[in-house]
């Protein structure tokens, strides 16, 4: 039984001169406690997918398809039920922690009152729990942190407070949208470690949106690679790294410079990432794909499952050998 099931999510946004598609049929299943990475470049629809789960898509957007959380269709809930769901089962961590915190409330007020309101806990119990949580997310001076206003804390500290707030309600699904993109690398490592640890301790499932395939590989059980509003490949980090089945996955992995080796020229994907609304008939990646065949240009390409993974490419079977990365280092997880 899946905790979360996305079934053919399509999203269109009105735009002058006709609607623009941002998502072109995203389907995904998340098991309880499973972490899934949504990885893609700009315009791939990774953040928008997350927003359809929370129902925070932009005003005027038309969404079709079903979002089932524990069998409940999130997209058909009324306002009160949606509020209950957001308070009880979902937690969100975004790129900017400052947006999640009320600037005129001290951290203590924000966290303690959040617990009291959402879960009806008594003040004393709530405060003890908050102290516990803050210590767990690596905040040394809990007293000083609780007494601080958001502007007095660094980005890394704030993101830890947001993580504490997110796990406080023990939600079943954590939605994380580039939670470390605005942080320095050393802070990113720290915050990701804490997020990963807290997620596992509380047995939460996670949808983790990022542009960084390596970062997602480190903390996710499976990774969905998105391109132009569709999932083009989904598999475990090890599967994707050693034997990608979609040309885009392979090229994305190759075009990132390595920390340990140099090449005279980096392999490149020609052109720029296309947006979902720019895609014509056929495979969305056809315009940039070096392995293109005539049949790639017409008709939609289905996402084909097999070997515990899935890929959206007509030629994935023929190219299987060619796409294997011989130089791919060992990937754990």
């Amino acid at each position: 039984m899946s905790l979360l099931e996305l079934d053919d999510i399509r999203l269109d946004l009105p735009h002058r001169g006709g609607d623009r598609a941002l998502l072109r049929g995203v389907s995904l299943r998340v098991a309880p406690g499973e972490a899934i990475g949504l990885v893609g470049e700009s315009g791939s629809g990774k953040s928008m997918t997350l927003r359809t789960v929370l129902r925070t898509e932009p005003a005027g957007a038309r969404v079709t398809g079903r979002v089932l959380l524990d069998g409940t269709d999130v997209r058909s809930l009324d306002a009160a039920a949606l509020r209950r769901l957001r308070a009880r089962d979902l937690a969100m961590i975004s790129q900017d922690p400052r947006a999640a915190l009320n600037p005129v409330l001290r951290v203590a007020e924000f966290l303690v009152e959040g617990l009291c309101d959402a879960r009806g806990e008594r003040r004393g119990t709530a405060e003890r729990r908050v102290r516990d949580l803050l210590a767990q997310v690596g905040i040394a001076d809990v007293d000083r942190c609780m007494d601080s206003y958001p502007h007095q804390l660094s980005g890394g500290m704030l993101q830890r407070v947001v993580i504490a707030a997110a796990v406080a309600g023990s939600p079943r699904l954590l939605l994380a949208d580039e939670p470390t993109t605005a942080l320095d690398v050393t802070t990113q490592s720290e915050v990701m470690a804490i997020l990963d640890e807290q997620r596992r301790e509380h047995g939460m499932a996670m949808l983790f949106v990022t542009h960084d395939l390596e970062l997602a590989s480190a903390v996710c059980d499976r990774i969905a690679v998105l391109y132009a509003g569709q999932i083009v490949e989904i598999g475990t980090p090890a599967q994707l790294h050693s034997a990608p089945r979609h040309p885009y996955t392979r090229l994305l992995l190759d075009s990132r410079p390595s920390l340990t080796a140099t090449t005279p020229t980096l392999p490149v994907i020609p052109g720029r990432p296309v947006a979902a609304y720019e895609v014509g008939a056929g495979c969305a990646f056809a315009t940039r794909c070096p392995w293109i065949a005539p049949r790639c240009r017409d008709g939609a390409v289905p996402l084909v499952e097999g070997d515990g993974r899935a890929v959206r490419c007509h030629r994935s079977d023929e190219l299987r050998g060619e796409l294997v990365r011989t130089s791919a280092p060992e990937v754990t997880g």
Binding site: E190, V191, D196, E214, S217, A218, V219, V331
Partner: peptide, 8 residues
């Protein structure tokens, strides 16, 4: 982050 990396 790099292949095989774990945040810590």
């Amino acid at each position: 982050p790099r292949p095989g990396w774990r945040p810590r």
